[in-house]
Each structure stands twice: as structure tokens, then as C-alpha cells.
Amino acid sequence: MTIKVGIAGRRGLNYWLGFQSDPRFRVEAFCELDEAVLQEDAAKFGIPRSYRIYEDMLQSDLDAIVVATPMQLHVSQTIAALDAGKHVLCEVTAGVAMDELWWLQESVERSGKVYMMSENACYFPENQIIAGMVRDGLFGEAYFGEGEYLHDIRHLGRLPGGKPSWRSYWQLGKRGAFYPTHSLGPLMKWFEGDAVRSVSTFGSGWHAAPEYRQEDTTLTVCRLESGKLIKLRIDCLSPRPKNAYYSLQGTKGCYEAPRGLGDTHKIWLEGMDASAEQANWRPLSDYMHYLPERYRLATEEQKSAGHWGSDFFIVHDFIQAITAGTKPEIDVYDACEWTAVALLSELSAMNGGKEMTMPKFRKGMPRAEQIIRI
């Protein structure tokens, strides 16, 4: 039996190779508003059906949908796909409002279909290596992590003709850490089994691009249920080179990602040097044996799928969840919690960094707990 896939949004074509690599799956449909893009990409990837109207695509005999449209459409399009009996792989963030997260969670539970959020930063090779080292206890007990997403997207706030784009409202028009999942996702995988208990966010004010409501930089502190801390920095307005940075501190060692200009991924573990005063970093590349085998065996074509091969392996896990009935790597409860960090951070930033309590997203969550505590 062939499982037929439809892709909504050009960004979703990064997943085409992952689906095509499995003979049980076939990308059958592509949906895109821009007619020229639709026809060009459908021909380029050999996709037989093309649609400009998303609902028309859902009425066809597809089995799974990739939602890779602007973020304010994610929940409505995901729910429509679930209600139509389709599995869903959805881009970040999961939604743009807390009510949407309740709707999403309940829709996934009601449908019985697979929902997975495609947070690609969790799949970066170096983040996978650190996850393996954490599981093997090389860092001891991890208790502090940092994630930073630094990407100047001011130019994306306007369309070529000068009109505001959707990003000028749903990203740059929001306060707080509007796009936290690239920073938070890998860290939550390193703190596996823990959960976010509260969120506090502070903004730097409006300096680089005062025309937007988003502040230049936001710092968010997530306190976990265990009491451990995660610090996030989101900056999409400051003039600077792009970088995604992570760090981890444990009782037996630490990790830091590169900052640029020849820097590299590096670790230090207890026992590497005679004393703390003599401690020196070691390259993470010395621990490449912790890279999962599927990464080490990946072909150059698979690595070219996007984000250092992340987009290929995301699809692999989505396929596994559908065919083997395994838990999605980033399920709806992860997706809602990580997205809720953005939504709570907005309230926190507008109230002087007030600590906001995270709802406990879980199966069968009662309506009485579907609230924001002020």
C-alpha cells in the first residue's frame, strides 16, 4: 500500500527527498498560492497534482499532509487535515494563541492520527551528539542550558512591493520570544523527562528597528519542573551575522557551540585536565562516535535535504510514527509546551518580566486547567 503525501507551502519541499526515499510513501500533491511557483516546483519535483486551494487538496485521497505555510495558518490547516483523516507533519511554531493549542491537542487526540512538529534544530548533528553524551552521563547531571536564535530578518517584514508581510505581524509584530522552538527544542531533548514550569522574559527595548513591536533582543528564563534553568535569547532585528548557539552545563562537564570566526563545537569533561585552573576545551569532533548511525551512513544526497540533513531525518521519524505506531519524536504535547513558551513570554515581557506558569500539556487535559495563570 502506498501512503500518499500532500505538501502545503514551498518550504515543505525540503521534505520531498525524505518521503521519496521510502518506497511506501509518495509525494502526490503540492499546494501553493503563487501560481508560477506552484507550476514550476510541481514540475521540478515531479509532483503530479497541484492545488492553489488547500481545502481542495484535503478532499483528495491523500493520507498525510505537510503543513509548511505561514505560522498563523498552522493550527487551522492542521485541524482541517486531521478532521479529513490525514496524518500531519507541521512546521514551527505549533500555533499563535493559547486557545489554538487547546484546540490542537484535543483535535489530535480525537483524530487518532499522527501529529508531529518538525523542529529541525533537534536534528542538527551536533545536537544529536550532545543528546547521546547526556544519555550516557558524560556531563553528569545537567542543570543549566542556553539556546540562542540570532537571525536578522528585518528585510522579510516587507514584500517586494513594500507591503507588510505576514512576518511583520505574527513575528516582528509580537512582544517576547515569538520564535523559541529552535533554541528550546534541543535543550528539552537534553533535559529529557523534564518540563517547563514557568517563563520569565525581558526585552531590551526598541533600537535597531523601532517600527516593529518586537524588541531588539529578548531574554527568557525557563524554570523547569526539576528547578533547573534554561536561558533563551531571541534576536531577529539586530544587525549582526546569523548564529544558532547552544550550551550545556552539568556536574561533570560542559558544552558550548561556536560563536563564529573559526570557533568550533567544544566540550570539557571532568578528568580531562589535572585541575580546573588548567582546564582546556576539547573539540566535539573527538566524540563523533555519539552521532547516530543513520547520520554516519547518510548519503550526500540525504544530507543535502536541508539543515545539514535534519529535514531528511525528521521525515524518517514521521514515517516511523505512521508505519510502526511509535510515539512521534516531537508530539503534540511537546509542540504545545514549546510553543506556549512564546505565548507566555509575550505576557511576561509586557508585565516587567513577570513569571508566568506553564500549563501541563498532557493527554486528556481537563478544561479547568486550560488557563493562563496571572
Rank of each mutant, 00 (worst) to 15 (best):
E126K: 15
V75S: 05
P239I: 07
A305K: 04
A335L: 03
D194M: 05
V67T: 09
L284K: 01
V341A: 06
Y51K: 10
E277S: 14
E148H: 15
K163A: 13
G173L: 02
L58K: 03
L219C: 06
A8T: 02
A244C: 13
E91I: 12
Y54E: 10
L347S: 11
Q59Y: 00
T181F: 11
L229E: 09
G12T: 01
L62D: 06
Q302C: 02
R10G: 07
F45W: 10
D152H: 07
W102T: 12
D286E: 14
L248H: 05
Y246W: 12
D61V: 12
A340Y: 10
I330Q: 10
E215C: 10
D273C: 07
V88N: 03
A279L: 04
P283A: 05
G162T: 00
G203H: 03
D311F: 15
P283W: 05
L229G: 04
C336F: 01
K163N: 12
L150S: 09
S285R: 13
G203S: 06
R282E: 04
A276Y: 14
V114I: 15
F312K: 00
R167A: 06
Y179N: 09
G203T: 08
E28A: 14
I267L: 09
A368E: 12
L219M: 12
G250R: 03
V108E: 02
R282L: 09
V75D: 01
E369I: 07
G112K: 03
Y245Q: 15
G132R: 11
G85P: 05
D61S: 12
V96D: 03
P239E: 01
A42Y: 02
L229K: 07
